[in-house]
Design a protein around this nucleic acid. Sequence first.
DNA 1: ATAAAATACGCAAGCGCTTGCATGATATTA
DNA 2: TAATATCATGCAAGCGCTTGCGTATTTTAT
Lengths: 333, 333
Amino acid sequence: MAVTLNDVAKKAGVSASTVSRVISGKEKISDKTKEKIFSIMKELDYHPNSQARNLATGSSQTIGLVINANEKDFYSNIFFSSSVFGIEKIAQDNSYNLIITNNQKKRNDKASIDTLLFEKKVDGIILPPLLLTKTLITKLKNNKIPFVILGEPNYFKDKISWVDINNTKGSNLATSHLYNKGYKQIAFLGGSENEIFTKNRIIGYKNSLNNQEPLIFNTENSEESITQAATEILKNKKVDSVICNDNITALILSKAAKEQNIQIPKDLGIITFDDYPLSKYISPALTSIVTDTYTQGEMAANMLFSLIQDKTAITHSLIDVSLIERESSMRNL
Amino acid sequence: MAVTLNDVAKKAGVSASTVSRVISGKEKISDKTKEKIFSIMKELDYHPNSQARNLATGSSQTIGLVINANEKDFYSNIFFSSSVFGIEKIAQDNSYNLIITNNQKKRNDKASIDTLLFEKKVDGIILPPLLLTKTLITKLKNNKIPFVILGEPNYFKDKISWVDINNTKGSNLATSHLYNKGYKQIAFLGGSENEIFTKNRIIGYKNSLNNQEPLIFNTENSEESITQAATEILKNKKVDSVICNDNITALILSKAAKEQNIQIPKDLGIITFDDYPLSKYISPALTSIVTDTYTQGEMAANMLFSLIQDKTAITHSLIDVSLIERESSMRNL
DNA sequence: ATAAAATACGCAAGCGCTTGCATGATATTA
DNA sequence: TAATATCATGCAAGCGCTTGCGTATTTTAT
């Protein structure tokens, strides 16, 4: 049905190999035949069949992105979406396609990863830290499949390519900003230390502390848990400012504060990680640490393509963060 | 390097066809050889090469999703992410993979779509309404490529499969909710009638109006434009309630109102389309029309698989909406 | 017991493309 | 002008799998 290489070759009176070489452009072909073949390709509206090409070459011109997101979880959604845009951008720049698979615990787990890797033959894969088990690493290494982790991994940090947000720096910025504004007792609210990004944020927080004990309030990823921790913070009369692990946490805290007539930023300063587009429109607008997951995605994809070319090109990197000051920490000294 | 069908066949002392048949499971093979082959496949850790299979069968076991999103635009991101999860879910249920391509004007435009479609990378494709030009439709039809539109299309509504949110019903719900709360003069704020979803929302709004003229304030997708329209609304002393086209619009309006000491919901009722997870935590919490884009994605994918099986199975459908009442419209009568 | 039907499997061509090697034509050099 | 190098192209095998057709073997019916 569809027009094939051979159809083009026949019509042009040349062999299939010649047409193939014209398309790939990597070998010398006389200008005359080249033009002829190009015009015939146009005429017949020829499109190479990538399946066939891939079978012959052994490359799929495709990379995979595995995510482990609860479909209805906003946090993972928003994070996911901006990094995926970055990844897709770089893939497209390299004339690659991007296959996305959600790897849910509920579903038949590793099946989807295995399919991607061993059947679809993606040329490389980007994974979230949580999915990275030691057996998976072994499998990937054994099969020489390039991969990069979208975040700092728990194992083999040195032997694996990964990109993370510079979370410790984020906490540094937040902490010193609050001190500069005259706050004296800063608390950290949200997340669990099982999450490596939270762990890093807490490290950064602790490192920048001045004349105070760390005041850490971990939470689970649920409204109740966060509300409870927020209440506890507000009870603690020492605390005059809080670094929140994400926007929802910041909003829950902010709401609880309002209900107790605690004024923001006068009585309580708030900074949040992640700059959701909404957070500048709410009141008080939230001072935020900008975590550029789009760039993180770009970087991850770039690393992956380096690995695809040279399997030994292991690197890591941290995406820089910045602080945007808004009302929630703008205390008039 | 990798284990092939033939390796398995040789080791089992059978022909490749037999192994192939065992795998596909569609033909009679004796239990004895079946078991033998299965155990050898395990032993050798055999994975079928989908490139080869696809070349032989002509199917790619992959569907495509084309989006046209500005990578840094939150609106499109959040919309995109939930529908993509729905699509991916259904793809996985059907043992298909999902390729995602962002079709940016800046980039070489239709190249990405063409690659997906005509190089046999996908068996079908999901497109946003904006990308659907008449030439593309012709091309798709000519090539018998199954496709469904993620939203109501501008052309050929009857001859194309599509799923949209029931936007008119959304406006109906919002309007009658506001009337029930005792508001008398409802305005519609945001969006442009070029967007078909906005158009439908305005139709629904007009249809449910009671003893009032339509009060429509369209905006561009920019902060200034929205702020300006919001200011204008607040000047119009008739208006006592507003249906906003999205959350950011609602927040900008809400902020402007606060600055003028207009009280929500007492002096001004607000309802917004789309229920962002944040909107229940802000103050006033926003009454929202829930637009279930996850289900929309699922539905789109299901439609696509119907089309893949039977190219004539054209259908359309609207995803039901609901209203969640929160503070911004809770006037004490 | 014999014909007919069903079963289990092998053969080989084919899916559309790439690529190492070979070859004839043309250009370069001494 | 002969010898050598360079070009432009063709040949054919191969990538790993599927599938229509054919055949030997077993089962069922008579």
